[in-house]
Simulated scan of single mutants.
Amino acid sequence: MSVRFHKMHGLGNDFVVIDGRAGPIALSEASIRALADRHTGVGCDQLILIEPSSVADVRMRIFNADGGEVEACGNATRCVTRLIGHDARIETLGGILHGRMIGDDATIDMGVPRFDWETIPLAYAMDTRDMPVSWDALERPTVANVGNPHVIFFVPDTYAVPLETLGPRIETDPLFPERINVNVATVTGPHAITLRVWERGAGITRACGTGACATAVAAIRLGLVTGPVTVTLPGGDLEIDWRPGETISMTGAATHVFTGELSEGWLA
């Protein structure tokens, strides 16, 4: 028996998407890691499994390339909305997200961001706007949870930061008991930010929707920019808008690359 999959991406953040609404799909961590391998598998940053939902139109489960399941992914939510082909309510571990199609793009209501140290979560209480911590030249970050946890550093030049070495150190620091996504951002205008992201369990990616949301929200919260904000990632631009006390709106591309089939041996 074979299982159909879709290769999709949002600004280069790429996914293997499997639609399991017709019947359960068994996936082990080992099979997810094998499918995500770019040399011997299909290759992806995350594997996305669509399932039936009792509280929304569909349920979306998100597995990083290391096989671990995570709460939310903005780029994947746009891709799932496009694959479904209509506006939809999408259940995730991070809450219910609302997707709306605009041509080939999708706008996602990402919900209300959280800033309390317990909900990030951090290992102990501290000011989440201006954290008295540092890792080499990266210091005094801010944090936000937008369905998954993000730490954000505002720096003069995001491309001057050795994210490939600092990212894994910060991700696994004991301060972050559930690990963390690491964002390094440069404000380039009153409505513009340049961003790179180290995703927990995936590494440096060409785009991260929740990272763009967390970074834009943090910059608005600190008075560095005003919304709407264009967040430029290596893979392209996302438009983020937010007002304190309201939900986050994220708009960007969702691209279907090809459809394939997995033989039974690929599944757990």
Rank of each mutant, 00 (worst) to 15 (best):
P228C: 12
A34T: 12
M110I: 09
W135N: 08
M60D: 07
E51A: 14
I220H: 06
I32Q: 05
G111K: 03
P141K: 09
L267G: 01
P52A: 13
I96A: 03
G111V: 08
H256C: 08
R82G: 05
G252S: 12
V146A: 01
S28L: 09
G99W: 00
F63P: 02
T119I: 13
V17K: 01
D157R: 09
D157C: 10
G211P: 04
I248A: 04
M126I: 12
R100M: 14
E171H: 11
G43R: 01
D45Q: 11
P156L: 04
A185L: 12
A212Y: 03
V112P: 01
L83V: 10
G20C: 00
E29R: 15
G167V: 03
A212P: 10
A202Y: 03
T188H: 11
A216N: 02
G147V: 04
G235M: 10
G111Y: 08
L267P: 06
M101L: 15
I170P: 01
R59T: 13
V257G: 09
R33P: 02
G41L: 06
V143H: 02
T247I: 11
A216K: 07
V55S: 15
P190Q: 11
A125L: 09
I193C: 05
F176Q: 04
G189K: 08
G209Q: 01
